[in-house]
């Protein structure tokens, strides 16, 4: 249909057909918007899922003897002769992020202290630091799991 034909058709459109067109347009638009709204409602996440899996890159980045802080988790990745270990840097008392000190790690909130292996030196924390699960992927990356 060219422009002239379309113009002729529109000119021939009766008042009734025009109203019908408008009505159907409304109905289609409402249907689309309601469907869109429903999909948005059903897919809405009121709270984001907590990340429990962290890909921290190639194992080559963590040479033998290294102790690397991974603030994103937070954890300390330790590479020794026996392999990789990820030590959680979340205090076992109330969950503050630990800071390294001369003897290991200290909690800046309530002064709990841990040695380099994560054992409690003094409280209020009573549990040692959590050792996190590690996987090395097929492409040589290290994944750390917090749950």
């Amino acid at each position: 249909m060219n422009v002239t034909q379309w113009k002729n058709k529109m000119t021939d459109l009766s008042r009734r057909d025009f109203l019908k067109l408008i009505r159907n347009g409304f109905l289609y638009l409402s249907g689309v918007l309601v469907t869109g709204g429903l999909l948005r409602f059903l897919s809405y996440e009121s709270e984001p899922k907590r990340k429990t899996e962290f890909d921290i890159g190639s194992a080559d980045n963590y040479p033998l003897g290294s102790r690397t802080s991974i603030p994103e988790i937070p954890a300390l990745l330790i590479h020794t002769e026996s392999g990789y270990t990820a030590l959680s840097l979340t205090c076992t008392h109330l969950g503050c992020t630990l800071e390294p000190n001369e003897t290991g790690f200290a909690c800046p909130c309530h002064n709990s202290s841990f040695d380099e292996a994560g054992n409690v030196i003094h409280g209020p924390a009573v549990k040692p630091l959590q050792v996190l699960r590690i996987e090395i992927t097929d492409d040589g990356n290290i994944k750390v799991f917090t749950a």
Binding site: I22, R23, L27, S30, L33, V34, G37
Partner: peptide, 13 residues
Amino acid sequence: LLLIASGLLLAAL
């Protein structure tokens, strides 16, 4: 009525 309802729905949205 359908037309009115769809109009109201659009207004509400």
